[in-house]
């Protein structure tokens, strides 16, 4: 199962990068997220898997698809002369980065002290119950902080995406000439 899901995950991620059409990229990204959710189930983090599907695949990607379709950008054959070496360097740097990370990680991993939530105990208590209890006790402050972050992001997105600046009753000429 691990291997199948890993192949889905890696293959779909590669396709996201390789596809010319952003809509296909978004679709493959959804597939990659679903593969990742499968991995989470294997790791006995069911609540995380469901959150992954619900939030990433269900909400964030719909937003992506929405914008991609709204803009309906055709990937034009952009003049690449300006940055001819960028692709090559990018690839080399990526491979170096991957090599560094993989060497660090692939060897013997020495784990720190083990916590109290063994898989048996988790299965007994229920993953979601433990998750919720911790979130609303030990991590309550962080939880509230993220809610403020989300509020700020929401307001920010609305301000940015407005067609005319705040307070202006009639659209300024520059904006209206481009309005579609």
């Amino acid at each position: 199962m691990f291997v199948i899901l890993a192949v889905i995950l890696v293959g779909a991620s590669l396709m996201v990068v390789a596809q010319r059409n952003p809509v296909y990229s978004a679709l493959f990204l959804i597939l990659a997220f679903l593969g990742l959710a499968g991995q989470f189930v294997l790791l006995q983090a069911q609540i995380i898997a469901v959150l992954q599907v619900l939030v990433y695949a269900g909400a964030i990607m719909v937003l992506f698809l929405f914008v991609v379709m709204l803009l309906n950008v055709r990937d034009r054959q952009a003049p690449e002369a300006k940055l001819r070496w960028q692709k090559l360097f990018g690839l080399i740097l990526t491979i170096i980065l991957f090599g560094l990370v993989a060497v660090t990680v692939a060897g013997e991993v020495r784990l720190g002290p083990q916590g109290e939530f063994t898989p048996q105990r988790l299965a007994e208590l229920g993953n979601a119950q433990v998750f919720g209890k911790l979130l609303f006790t030990d991590f309550l402050f962080l939880f509230e902080a993220t809610s403020v972050l989300l509020l700020v992001a929401m307001i920010g997105a609305m301000v940015l995406a407005r067609r005319r600046p705040l307070g202006a009753s009639s659209p300024p000429p520059a904006a209206s000439s481009r309005a579609d």
Binding site: Q46, V50, L54, A57, G58, A59, L65, F66, N127, A128
Partner: peptide, 25 residues
């Protein structure tokens, strides 16, 4: 009888959007 059955329903509901969106596009 999964311990997160309720969230499972919602996850699948949110996936149901794609059929319509993809058909439209």
């Amino acid at each position: 009888n999964v311990n997160i059955g309720f969230l499972y329903i919602f996850a699948l509901t949110s996936m149901g959007v794609y059929g319509v969106v993809l058909a439209g596009w």
